[in-house]
């Protein structure tokens, strides 16, 4: 469970998040949408403290990550993250990318990590690529490896920061399929996305952010068919 209370973030003098409060229940799938510059990514990155909030509180399960006394490294082990730019380790092979953190952070043996890694690679459909370096993979393949890498830590929840925005159109589907199959396992997920069809189909709730504020928080059917706020109406009109 993730609980967020009056989250604020400023870069220099620009306030990017202006007090956002929400709760993500265990097993819930949240789509975070909104125009670019609305603070969606910053919001997501605050949850595992890749950005340090300027104000407010965040709890991941019972840990208040905004409390300096809480060991953020331990919390990050429970929260997997997938980035727009994949961020695979280029000097490691696909399998090495996946097994590194479980071995180094969790102290799992190499053979165990490899067994699990191969299992995950099979699930994302890339078993034959385990010895390739990331540079030899397509964007869609890279992102699937990145998902497998995050899952190798056995996280309790996953954050996706625009996972398909850097992909060529023909590769978007394969990545979304992987995320969908993950959704079926009951994983708690927060996904920043521009894929409205996907959000509508997969999400339990849609958070619409605009100008650093949480403008709407609704079920997808409700949000997409009858958005309440003018800002959401304008946004949907532009993209749908």
């Amino acid at each position: 469970m993730i609980k967020i209370q009056d989250l604020r973030k400023s870069f220099k003098n620009i306030e990017v998040l202006k007090g956002i409060s929400t709760t993500i229940q265990k097993g819930e799938i949240i789509a975070i949408i909104g125009p670019s510059g609305s603070g969606k990514s910053t919001f997501l990155r605050c949850i595992n403290l890749l950005e340090t909030p300027s104000g407010g509180q965040i709890w991941v399960n019972e840990n208040e990550v905004t409390n300096p006394k809480v060991n953020i490294m331990k919390v990050r082990e429970q929260v997997g993250m997938v980035f727009q730019q994949f961020n695979l380790f280029p000097h490691k092979t696909v399998l090495e990318n996946i097994i590194y953190a479980p071995m180094m952070v969790k102290g799992i043996s190499k053979s165990e990590a490899e067994t699990k890694g191969r299992d995950l690679l099979k699930k994302v459909g890339l078993s034959e690529k385990e010895n390739e370096h990331p540079v030899r993979l397509s964007g869609g393949q890279k992102q699937r490896v990145a998902i497998a890498r995050a899952l190798a830590m056995s996280p309790e929840m996953m954050l996706f920061d625009e996972p398909t925005s850097a992909l060529d159109p023909e590769m978007v589907k394969e990545v979304l399929e992987v995320i969908k199959s993950l959704a079926l396992t009951g994983m708690t997920m927060a996904i920043v996305t521009h894929e409205m069809g996907f959000a509508r189909e997969v999400a339990d709730r849609v958070l619409f952010l605009d100008d650093g504020q949480l403008v709407e928080d609704a079920a997808p059917a409700e949000f997409f068919s009858s958005p309440k706020s003018k800002r959401a109406q304008d946004f949907l009109e532009k993209i749908l």
Binding site: M73, R76, M81, F83, N87, F89, M104, V105, A150
Partner: peptide, 29 residues
Amino acid sequence: DRGQLEASMALGIPYKKMMKDIVLPQALK
């Protein structure tokens, strides 16, 4: 690339190991 640091942090990799196994090998190359 900053993304390398972010990916390491998100995986909970401690600073020393991140430097030794992720950042320095890429820097040295």
